[in-house]
Design a protein around this nucleic acid. Structure first.
Length: 198
DNA sequence: AGTGCGATTGACT
DNA sequence: GTCAATCGCACTA
């Protein structure tokens, strides 16, 4: 199926809707040997005023990309080891975003294997840090427009999304009970224990 | 200037 | 299942 770049105008206006809408979309990364891509199978919403969001205490040097217009990349380092890719989701000046947690690899799988080392293909982009490693995503991509042609962008290929499951978010310490994690039900490329992907 | 701590991962029992 | 690695950044002084 042919890829079509997503435009900012078609992004749902609120964060939770965007998190759900992004399931099934495709992340495309320009790499030296050609494009690598994967279908989004898992996201989490971090809402305005959300105590679990990096934007909760206002704009800082690190989180400023969360305050950009919808469709920009917010990339940060967690635990000193893992890069995380988020999509900004609210009008300029409002800090909120959607964390991309897992991809089903589509194109450029050989390059992803090279970036990830010896792991099963199922694990190439199964987890937020792993997907960033697979696609060579780091701080240099922070703040870029994901609706514009470039090194990293969002696309859709018109494939049916399937059932979307909902659960609480993974790995956070505050607002742990909110149902803001979305995933493609039954996909083997979704992260977390099986009980989180019934 | 020093301190504490993650929106995780991979190695190991 | 447990647990340490690792570092940029926010926070305190």
């Amino acid at each position: 199926m042919r890829l079509r770049r997503v435009s900012r105008a078609e992004l749902p206006r609120d964060t939770e809707a965007l998190a759900r809408w992004l399931i099934g979309c495709v992340v495309v990364r320009a790499l030296p040997d050609g494009p690598a891509s994967g279908r989004i199978v898992e996201t989490e919403a971090y809402l305005p005023g959300d105590a679990a969001s990096h934007a909760f205490r206002g704009m800082t040097v690190r989180n400023r990309s969360l305050f950009l217009r919808p469709g920009h990349a917010y990339v940060y380092r967690a635990y000193g080891t893992a890069w995380m890719l988020n999509v900004s989701s609210e009008p300029a000046g409002i800090g909120a975003g959607v964390l991309i947690r897992a991809l089903e690899p589509l194109m450029g799988i050989a390059q992803m294997r090279g970036n990830r080392g010896a792991v099963p293909d199922r694990d190439l982009a199964r987890g937020p840090g792993r997907l960033a490693t697979a696609l060579a995503i780091d701080r240099s991509l922070d703040g870029i427009d994901l609706t514009a042609p470039g090194l990293l962008w969002l696309a859709t290929d018109g494939q049916a999304v399937g059932d979307i499951g909902i659960s609480t978010r993974i790995g956070i310490a505050r607002d742990v009970d909110l149902p803001l994690r979305f995933y493609r039900r039954g996909s083997p490329f979704v992260s977390g224990p099986r009980r989180l992907n019934p």
